[in-house]
Computed example of a mutant assay.
Amino acid sequence: MHNDYTSATILSTVTNFIMNHDKPFTHTYRTYIRLRESGPQTLHFWHSNAVDSTWDMGQIAAASDLGGKWRIEAAFVADGGMEPKGDVVKGSQVPLTFDGNISKIVQSGEKFWSDEVQIDIPAGHFLAFTWSITTMSSGKTIPFNTETLLATVYDAPGILADQESSNSYQESENQLVVPTFIGYKKQVEKQLIFLGDSITQGVRTAKDQYEYWVARIAAELPTTTGVWNIGSGWARAYDAATDGAWLYKAKQADEIVIVLGVNDLGTANRIATQLMTDLTTIISTLKINNPLINIILCTVPTFNFTDEQEKAWRKVNDQIRTKPPIGVDRVFDIAEVLSQDAPNDHQLKPEYMTNMYDPHPNGIAGKAIAEAFLAWY
């Protein structure tokens, strides 16, 4: 990554799914993004054409699957206004180029940078990023993030990237199709990265409100601390332990907060020793890459586990609290913040539930975690 750039947003743009169509297509995607700082900006976009983390059990998308070949027809940044309505402020669009070209063919698995671009986003306004993409084949092509969207996204068939109005655009439900890294030119004292699953990404919190715990932490930290959220819905520790596309991003950190394990114990039904082995591998790999990296390991968040999964959750968290893997510099007990009092400490506090059936932490929980983290940090 470029040392002069840090993430311009706390919105996670990690990929956990891939488009799989029976014929080639051309489509335009417009995403509204809150920036950490307003005013004149020099932006620089980096993209990795690969899936970062596994969705479900990997039937369609698994960690480090390579994207197919596709072409960027055109891309623009613009002032998205104060409300994400599908249009952009008239006259504000600026074309994004790649080695001086408006279009670019993206090869399977390719990593690449855009050229720098200057734009002025007023306080309270969104950055609107729009690009038109053509796939070069049928089958699996473009990696993206699918989950309950945390940002407003519109899409439309055809090449409409240069269109200022919302004509033909429809609001998207579950496709976040954006570059991997939205950077802005900023000298920072350190790069702080949050590596985790949907709880780190912020899934189930209110769209466009940035009320999840990582966003709330970033809002209280000085902008001289760069913050990059690489949380990914349905991700698990063994995705990162493969040392593929996702961990490559984590290696850009000076300091990293790791919050993994819910999907390992739940979705994947792995046992405590398997999860601890994967966490140990991740930490060792990061330390070998950068011996000076500061690693904060979190306990596995409370997720209403029962029976054998609850036993594994308790065993892992006991080990993290008392004897974390070699290389861990500090431990933050996120589970303690979220849990009810013992003996029901495997249950999320009711006020922190998304709803009575969904233990994803809501915005109230995000506030509690952020306050506890900042007081501890």
Rank of each mutant, 00 (worst) to 15 (best):
M1A: 13
N3T: 11
S7H: 15
A8L: 03
T9Q: 10
T9L: 11
I10Q: 01
I10A: 04
S12D: 11
T15P: 06
M19L: 08
H21I: 04
H21P: 06
L35Q: 05
E37F: 03
G39V: 06
W46T: 00
A50M: 12
Q59C: 03
S64C: 13
L66D: 03
G67I: 04
G68P: 04
I72A: 06
E73K: 12
E83V: 05
D87R: 09
V89R: 02
S92W: 03
F98K: 00
N101E: 10
I102M: 14
S103W: 02
K104I: 00
G109M: 09
K111I: 05
D115R: 00
V117Q: 15
D120K: 13
F126N: 13
A128L: 03
F129V: 02
W131E: 07
T134Q: 13
T134A: 15
T135V: 07
S137M: 11
S138H: 06
I142C: 04
E147M: 03
Y154D: 03
D155F: 02
A161W: 08
Q163A: 04
S165Y: 04
S165F: 05
S168A: 01
Y169V: 02
E173I: 07
Q175Y: 13
V177I: 12
V178P: 10
P179C: 10
G183Y: 05
G183P: 06
Q191K: 14
Q191S: 10
L192P: 08
D197H: 12
S198A: 12
I217S: 08
A218L: 07
P222L: 10
P222S: 11
T223V: 02
A235I: 02
Y238H: 08
A240R: 12
T242N: 14
D243M: 01
L247F: 01
Y248A: 13
K249H: 11
A250W: 05
I256Y: 06
I258Y: 06
V262M: 05
L265M: 05
N269A: 14
Q274S: 15
L279C: 07
L279M: 11
T281Q: 09
T281N: 09
I283A: 10
T285V: 13
L286C: 04
L286R: 14
L286V: 05
L286A: 09
N289W: 05
N290S: 15
N290H: 15
L297D: 09
L297G: 13
L297W: 15
C298H: 09
C298M: 10
F305E: 01
E308N: 13
Q309A: 15
E310V: 03
K311V: 14
K315P: 04
D318G: 03
R321Q: 11
V328T: 11
V328A: 10
V331M: 09
I334F: 08
E336R: 14
V337D: 01
A342C: 06
D345Y: 01
L348M: 10
P350F: 14
P350G: 12
P350N: 15
M353P: 02
M356H: 06
Y357W: 13
P359Q: 08
P361M: 01
K367E: 13
K367D: 14
F373K: 00
A375Q: 15
A375Y: 15
W376S: 12
W376Q: 07
